[in-house]
Nucleic acid binder design. Structure first.
Lengths: 157, 157
DNA sequence: GTGTGAGTTGAAGTGGACTTCAACTCAAGG
DNA sequence: CCTTGAGTTGAAGTCCACTTCAACTCACAC
């Protein structure tokens, strides 16, 4: 027997609010069968999809990108462990990058706390990836706004 | 001479859009003098405030909290290096915590990628801080939604 | 059969952090 | 003086990820 879950059960098991689950469904991230009375019934496999969604969000991936990733799963069969492994692995570098940036920020901040400078010319915070525009006096920094995770800006004096 | 900056100059030097600078001013995060013609003129010290704001945002602090922190700066004098050091240090534990969570997520994900399980009972992803409600069968996880940085949820089977 | 808690919908609201717009005014070089 | 690029305002719009609401309908224990 399929042993289907109601939205309340899926919510309790996943820690995701029913309203969020309905929202995910609207976005095409999860799916549900319906009872004769039009209520949602989720296959247990959806639990894994929801888990993947929450993990991905933690990694900093938007629901839109998560949808794309989920779309790459086989439609016919229930995703295998390997399928999930592939998707999870695909976020790995993004996670690494986030951790790297945050760690760098911490180290830089420690250095700045030592000197109290808070992001000056001599401080790495100032120029995260050595991408300063070199023209004119004074440091400036262009934040990669579109890509989010804005590389830190800092400039003084 | 004070050597004041126009909004365009502050924007170029800080990497923050003029519209965002005006927005910060409305929220009381930065301040500006005005020319006879009502244009903003920023003291160079504001540059450090803007740097602090962007750094704080990276740490994951809201503008509202940043405002509170900035409010603790001395009103009379220009903030000293020690002032900035104190503020920067105050975010340190939050940064540590973010890094810790993200690193744990990475390790857990590596484990899950190995087995393809993706957040199951035997997987730590399932129960981030061993805070599972112990009642009934099946894992469940309550996300600390209000505090943001949602501890990961996962449940399977 | 009935009561009650769980579920349904579309539309609208929320919150954070900004951006865009229209309609002007300023500042500075030629 | 005149032009032009930079700056001003308040109001409204945007994006994301949801939540809330009202008005119903279902499912199930008793």
């Amino acid at each position: 027997m399929p042993d289907l879950l109601t939205i309340g059960e899926l919510s309790a098991r996943s820690g995701v609010a029913p309203s969020a689950l309905r929202y995910y469904e609207r976005l095409g991230l999860i799916r549900a069968d319906r009872t004769g009375g039009n209520q949602r019934r989720y296959a247990r496999a959806e639990l894994r999809r929801v888990a993947f969604i929450r993990i991905s969000q933690q990694v900093g991936v938007s629901l839109d990108e998560i949808r794309e990733a989920l779309d790459s799963l086989p439609e016919a069969r229930t995703p295998s462990p390997q399928d999930w492994a592939r998707l999870s692995a695909s976020w790995r570098s993004r996670l690494d990058e986030r951790i790297r940036l945050l760690t760098k920020l911490r180290d830089d901040l420690d250095g700045c706390i030592g000197c109290g400078c808070l992001s000056l010319q001599r401080c790495t915070l100032n120029n995260p990836e050595d991408t300063l525009a070199g023209e004119g006096p004074g440091a400036r920094l262009v934040l990669p706004r579109p890509t989010d995770d804005p590389t830190l800006a800092g400039a003084l004096n």
